[in-house]
């Protein structure tokens, strides 16, 4: 089973500037991802960046993920 810590690590490995918090019960997860790289980008693009970091994990390991993206200081 996937743990919130694993998801946090997967995102942080690819989005190096990101500060990530993940809560979840193994089925449903909620991630808050904060990164200066999100500045000036639309919400769709910000979420796409997180999804891209997770790659195939979104298909295979993670069944349900909610997320909120944040630009630090905004």
């Amino acid at each position: 089973m996937v743990t919130p810590e694993e998801i946090k690590t997967w995102i942080e490995e690819k989005l190096e500037s990101a500060v990530v918090e993940v809560e979840g019960d193994g089925q449903h997860f909620y991630a808050t991802v904060s990164s200066p790289d999100f500045a000036g980008k639309s919400m769709v693009v910000q979420h796409q960046m997180v999804y891209a970091a997770l790659g195939d994990k979104m298909k295979a390991d993670i069944h349900a993920l909610s997320m909120k993206t944040v630009v630090p200081g905004e």
């Binding site: 919400m43 979420h47 796409q48 999804y51 993920l65």
Partner: peptide
């Protein structure tokens, strides 16, 4: 380029999940 469902489109444009 969005790996999850649902997806909303308004007048042809992808809005988000």
């Amino acid at each position: 380029n969005w790996p999850t469902i649902p997806q909303l489109y308004i007048r042809g444009e992808f809005v988000g999940g």
